[in-house]
Structure formats: C-alpha cells, structure tokens
Nucleic acid binder design. Structure first.
Lengths: 241, 241
DNA sequence: GTTTCCCGAAATCTCGAGAATTGTTATTGA
DNA sequence: TCAATAACAATTCTCGAGATTTCGGGAAAC
C-alpha cells in the first residue's frame, strides 16, 4: 500500500527502528514544545552530542524535519528552526479549516458503526480529561493533548482520502507548535468542552452542515488566542525571556 | 520569511548549491519520467555510481524525496519508488480539485493588474506551444509541459496562501507522474486548448463560478485517461514491457 | 511434498575524518 | 575615524569503511 506520510503518522504507535527516526522524533517533539525556539540555528556539531548520534545521522533527521516544515535548510548555511509569524498561522488555520471540514464531510458520509463506536469512545476519554482539567489537575495537560488530537483524528478517520489526512496531519502539527508557544499567555480558557460536546453530537446525528460549521469556528477560535501573542515570541526568542 | 516547500518550488529557477539538492532534482525527474518505475527498489550502492555522489549524500537526497511522497522508506529495508494505483490517483485528483479551485477563488479575488498581465503572457506562450503541437511538432512536448504548468501556476499565483500552493505543488507533481506513465497509451487527445481558452477567459472576466467549474472538469478529465491505463503499469513494470 | 531451520551474501545503517564554504576579526591604508 | 582587504576560525558538506540487519537458497526433518 502507498503509505503516505509514514513519517508524520501518529495514530499507530509506530516503533522507530532506526536511529534516524528516533532522532527525528525527539527533535520534532523538542521543536514543537519550544525547546528549540523559532529561528534558532541548529548546529549539527552541537546537536549530535545532545542526541547521541553521528553527524550524518542527525543530518538525515533534519532533512526529514524539512518535510514537516518545522525546519528550513538554507543552501550552504545549515539548518534553522522554521520561523513563525501571525500571517503564517492565519494561513495554517484557514487551510486547516478547508481540509478538515472536507474530511469531516466525507467522514460523516462514510462512517460505519465501528467508526461511531470509536467516536463515542474517544469523546468519552476526552471528556474525562477535560473534567479533571477543570478541577485544577494540571498534570493531565499532556494527556489532554493526546486525547484532543485523538478525538479530532477519529472524527475524520472515515474520510477515505489519504492525502487530505496527510496534509491535515502536517497542519495540525504546525498549529500545535503555535498553540504551545502561546500557552503561557493564554492558559486554557474558553469552554472547549462545550464546543467538543456540540461537535460530537452533530457528528453522531450526521448533521453535516452543523458539524462542519462548529468545527470551523472551533479551529478559527484559536486564531484570536495566538494573535494576542507577545511580539518577542514571534521574533524567535525563547518563551522564558 | 517562512519559505515553505523550498524543496518543491519550481517557479523560480533555483540553482542547486549542494550536491544533495542536485542529486535530489535529478532523481525526482527520473522518477516522474518513469526512468525508475513505481515499486522499483532504490539501492544506494548502485545509484551512488549512477549519480556520481557518495552513499550518505544519496541517502539524504532519498530522504528529501520521501517528502514529496515519490519515494517510500521502509524501516530497515531501504528505499523504494512509491507504488501507484488507480485509487491513489483518484485521491490525488479529487484533492487537487479541492485545493486548486480554492486557490483559484482566492487568486481571482486578489489578482491585480500585474497578475492579469502575467496571465495573458503565460496563456499566450501556452497557446503557441499547443499550436505547434497540433501541427505535429512532437519536439515541443517538453516545452509544452513547462508552459502548461506555468499557466496553471500563474492562474493561482495571486492566492496568498503559501500552504495551499505548497500542497498543490506536491499534488501536481504526483499527477504529472501518473500522466507521464499513461502517455504512451493516451498520447495527447482531447481539445485541451479549448479548455485552456475557456478557463483563461473566465479567469480574466473574474467569473469565479465559471472558472472554478471549468478548472474542476479540466482536472477531473485526466482521471478517465489514467483509468484506461494498462494494468502492468499499475503493477510497477517498466512502460516498455 | 511441504515446512522449518540455518547459513552465506548483499544491502542498509552508522560513524568519524577530510575538503570546501561561510562568517568573523584584525590589519592596513586613505 | 571609516572602508576595504586579508587571514583566521567555525561550520557545513562530503566521502569511504565498519557493524547490523535483512534476504535468498539449500539441506534436514516431519
């Protein structure tokens, strides 16, 4: 089978069988979480010690990250963490709406009983995490991340288009980076659970118009949060400065 | 600036400054043109001689091709030319319609005088090539390829979304591979020029509905051609067998 | 006749060192 | 004091060789 985006696939707990992939995953995580802030120069000589691999191996991992547009390679001047900007995030968000609503449309048209069951299950898991979060248990933030992503993935899981899902994965990854970088300023806020609940019910009812409408606004709402980001973050400074 | 897709950008005559990029470009071309048929195993040891680079260098070039989904990397079992299938091409085509019509919509809404001028120019160049082609001059096929792509790129050039254009580039590349592989059976056919003419006029008139409609059908029509491909091509055999 | 196991060959993956390019600093001259 | 040039240092890019893993054929066992 033509397994597009095996590199960015996250649904299956894929076990990295090579050092390149292992380094790739660790690097990707560190970039998304802001350990390597936007614009930072990624020197191979320094990073190969930190990630405990050879120089050539790390280079390949960096090339893979260019795929996800998390790293940019400049001619003969090495690698750099992809810069960020409000315009870019706006682009990401609007394109995400375009793709994700189409995916949802197709998913609602094709989803069978098994899909419905999976949706109920993942919504339940997400609800539990959101409940704990609202009770002040901040340790579950990490877990909520995963369940949130899982819920959104399940929503469009019945979409038969591998390409749409592939592109959607890349964009989700990108927006996640922006969201992480803006988190410390805009903690959780919003009644996200209510939005998820409405989305879930509309999906189960196969109300395409309503579901896509809710999903659009759900995604677009994150735009405001990021637009209020402090400027120094956009310039690639570390979040703590 | 966040230069997404520097690897797949083709509009600017980007000069490869590193051996990796040079090998990447040559390999990509050979894969699209069918020199390396779908499913073929890409052995580093053999290819490094053919492309006159080191083993590590070629590995990096192959990793870059994974980005474009022209090559798939399997765990510890090396690289392979991405397989093809009718289902995959159908997916590619429909997703292309989704993205390219949206891009055209935005482009028509934003295109200024300079864009109009560029569109007139590229359409003129394309028309000339199509005229020569209809006169039986088969040497211009290569040139027609470029001008056809240029025309379609100019159409959506005023679309401000880098991400949509990025994804569109990838999909265009993919569909080009399918088209090349099916060429020997379905040479040129269709009155492509008439379609281009109608598309051009609708775009100049800023008739969004008409333009997107024509573009959709224009893209979808290639589906039929590929669906009539001989089966052995789909199985990854060389086109000459 | 079919399956299983084992071993050799081939290919992949990984690493460190050398050549080429870029960015910086110091020196010279006006 | 400032601009231009030249040498230096740092980093990137490239290459070939060694360790690990996978693939294929053949013999033995059931």
């Amino acid at each position: 089978m033509n397994d597009i985006a095996s590199a960015t696939e996250t649904s299956a707990p894929y076990e990295p069988k090579t050092l390149v992939e292992a380094a790739y995953k660790r690097l990707r995580r560190d970039i998304i979480e802001g350990v390597h802030p936007p614009g930072e120069k990624l020197r191979v000589e320094h990073l190969k010690d930190q990630y405990e691999v050879g120089a050539g191996t790390l280079r390949e991992a960096l090339q893979l990250l260019v795929t996800d547009a998390l790293v940019v390679a400049q001619g003969q001047r090495g690698f750099r963490v992809a810069p960020i900007s409000i315009a870019d995030f706006e682009d990401i968000t609007r394109t995400r709406v375009l793709l994700e609503t189409e995916a949802l449309r197709q998913s609602l048209a094709r989803g069978d009983d098994a899909w419905e069951a999976a949706l109920v299950a993942s919504f339940h898991r997400l609800s539990r995490a959101e409940q704990k979060l609202s009770e002040g248990d901040l340790d579950t933030t990490e877990e909520w991340e995963r369940r949130n992503r899982a819920f959104h993935e399940t929503l469009i899981a019945a979409c038969p288009s591998r390409w749409i899902r592939h592109f959607q994965n890349i964009l989700y990854q990108q927006s996640e980076r922006y969201r992480r970088l803006s988190l410390f300023r805009q903690p959780v806020a919003r009644d996200v659970h209510a939005e998820h609940q409405a989305l879930f019910e509309a999906a189960l009812a196969r109300d395409v118009t309503r579901a896509t409408s809710i999903l659009s606004e759900h995604i677009l709402r994150t735009l405001d949060a990021v637009k209020r980001m402090p400027i120094d973050v956009l310039n690639g400074k570390p979040a703590t400065h």
